[in-house]
Design a protein around this nucleic acid. Structure first.
Lengths: 214, 214, 214, 214
DNA sequence: CATGAATGAGGTTTCATTCAT
DNA sequence: AATGAATGAAACCTCATTCAT
């Protein structure tokens, strides 16, 4: 409501924080996980020495939290723009959203960050919650709202809107997980865009009551 | 003090130890991840001392591999039975399979193990491959084969069978991931069984050419 | 308590540390041997803590090699000076060389180092080779060259020059070994200088064809 | 003097002690040294398990002492026979003794044992003393006695008989040390027998006042 | 501010020794 | 008498953190 208070409270002085450190740390943390990451490696990658890290972050844990929160924050803007600006029916949104997500996922660090948050969700449950509240819930709320309205208009089959939302995004998440775990060389998972297109048609056919025009 | 207090300091249980160690190690590894797990904790949980671990596993890494492989092997039997014994159409299989998976997932350690393999897939790519070959590929192959045959009979819409398979199982995997990451207390994700039922109808409607009877 | 007690916990002495560590390590290694030496003892003797050792040497083995090589290098200069500068006949060299060696041996760490290299020659054959090439072969080559020339001039009896060299230095080496093994308290081995003098006369008489002037 | 008390007091129940253990232990101890030797390796080599060793020796140290003492004891008989039976002049003894020693050294475990005793002489000074009293002193006493008598008869030059003894045996000891440290492959040390023969002539020429007949 | 030498707690691993079988 | 599973006390080594420079 307050114009000056629409940013999440976990956002911190990003102005002073050298982006090099966050970048380096994100890379190393996603590569090795929290416990196996050495501050020396982060420092080396950031072009500084270990001791200098302590000018910016008091502990390894602080740095880790900052990395996750900062990276989320960056993507948060995109998510919020999409979710607030979009005005349209579910049938219009789903293909666009899946396609958009598919193109954004390729080459981004979102899947790697997601894997990191998954990995450390037991050790850092607060980060899991931040991830949920700032990333997951936005997408789910956008979808469930649309689904609920469409159900009220008689356009979408009955059923838990949340389940429908899972039906929509689940396959794409699974695909991202595949690429993260097995890479491109090990298995032949469907490409993000191919999956987005085909699954959009499938799931819309599955949930719309009158999917004639798809 | 007590004359009858002649209980031994320890007992020899060579045959039972491995299972007890694997159990304890699975618990601690899934709780803390590979790097943050202390062998002392595993030993304590297994009711032995640290040194005894080394009679059974040469290194921490060996123990970790044994835990993952052993746990996979246990579930492998179930997976193979289901995938080899099932004979039926896709329309019959999907609801049964999703429901079966949903009930098996609850209270099992499969999601925790999956999370562990996801977490360590960069550090132990060979384990990721084992997971893929023994768990993932069985399910995918079962589904893509059925889908391909159904497409040949004109029962299922065209499209990459692998994408269809992702459309089928993706939401359930996402649901399991939710419960692993956020637990039951933090968010209200749909229950496994509710999701399985509703999504089965959705996805079958979405891919079958003549889903009248669903 | 004391207001003026602001002495630092430690000081940085990067340039001095290696020598101090080598000194301490040489002492402890020669006292206990490689395997029985504890890095804690070396660190304590060097006035640092165990972890600091690893800023300078990656492993215990690396430190050991450095100790041996460094100590050899120090004495190498002396050996090379003597062997290259000396110009004279065998009859002149032998008494001087033995006497010089006898005085240098007393109170030096050469016998202790030799004992160490002997002890670990099976575990570190490369160090045995370094010892041979840098210490032993210099002396042997110097002697065998002189002996060969003297034989060519008809001054020295026929026979393998290498055996003659052994005849010259063997007793002094044995004497050093005695002092290392049994110390001064246990047995009454001849003093280095007495042995050097008497044996020089003996061996020269033994190998020279015309030892009138001895 | 007492007929029933002419064996050294450190000789222990060799009757009950399995020779296999001593043999195995001697091999492993001489290969790795005391500290780096694992009882498991000794046991494996002896065809038993580690626990069984403790039926015969209370500690690793006890076993080590037994190995050294037993091996010394075996060679002691030879030494005593030679030193007590030999009756002759120094000029007769030296070539025979050196040649005999040279042939016995090749292929025997005496040099290896000597290296072991040298290595551990700081850790086990009592064993160094046993070695001295039972091996070294016998040879030295034999030689110094003969030298002293020969000097009294005017056959041998003046000088400390002990130094003369060192002049006699030093080169052979050095040669044995060479073979132990560097092996046959690394360097070309003189053969034991060649050295024994040539050095015998050298040293006798060196110390005899009238070495015409050599 | 930045550096990097130094710390010290803690982890994995080894192995002599014990003891139930 | 023999076994070998189990112990537990170190040992080597790592690395987040501190602090003199």
């Amino acid at each position: 409501m307050n114009v000056t208070d629409n940013k999440p409270k976990w956002s911190r002085r990003k102005d002073l924080r050298p982006a090099e450190i966050i970048d380096a740390a994100l890379h190393v943390f996603t590569e090795y996980g929290f416990a196996a990451t050495k501050l020396d490696d982060i420092a080396k990658r950031a072009g500084i020495v270990k001791g200098t890290l302590y000018r910016y972050y008091d502990t390894k844990e602080d740095l880790f939290r900052a990395v996750v929160q900062h990276t989320i924050e960056v993507h948060l803007q995109t998510i919020q723009q999409v979710s607030t600006n979009f005005q349209g029916s579910l049938a219009e949104l789903v293909p666009v959203l899946l396609k958009y997500a598919a193109t954004r996922i390729s080459g981004s660090n979102v899947p790697a960050l997601a894997r990191l948050v998954i990995s450390e969700s037991h050790t850092f449950p607060d980060l899991a919650r931040i991830w949920y509240e700032n990333v997951v819930s936005h997408v789910l709320t956008l979808l469930t709202d649309l689904i609920g309205k469409a159900q009220a208009r008689g356009e979408v089959r009955m059923g838990d809107p949340k389940v429908h939302a899972f039906s929509i995004v689940g396959p794409l998440v699974l695909s991202a997980l595949f690429h993260e775990m097995f890479g491109n060389s090990i298995i032949h998972a469907p490409s993000f865009t191919a999956l987005a297109e085909q699954h959009a048609q499938t799931v819309l056919t599955g949930i719309l009551l009158d999917p004639v025009r798809l």
